[in-house]
Amino acid sequence: MWARDVEVMLGVWLIISPFVFVHSDEATLLWASDFAAGGLVATFAVLSYWRPARHAHLLTLLVALWLVAFGRFGAASPLPPGMQNEIVVGLLLMMFAISQLRDAAARRLV
């Protein structure tokens, strides 16, 4: 499922973001947020390939909400690049997390 693959890539992007955007040493929460969110997103996406956990990617929505909220309100504007990155990636993840290529094919009439 292509959306899950994109989510893994975005998770990896979050994990390398502190080095790309050169977060300051004082921004501990931003470092932690990038690492934790990235790790969780990639984990949920990979877990979704395992049938019993196929809806795990929906948990990514919660992580995405955190990213947008923390990115927007975690600092005064104008926001530092690392925070803006969290907003953008959060919004991207929201769109991908609810996407699923196939629909009702497996469903039965009840």
Binding site: L92, F96, D103
Partner: peptide
Amino acid sequence: YGWFGIHDAALGALAYLGDAIFGLAGSTRR
């Protein structure tokens, strides 16, 4: 920029990308 925290063009780009992603998802009887 002050309201959203990111530039309006960036938000626009995300919205257009959303159009494409949501356009691609689902079957031909979605």
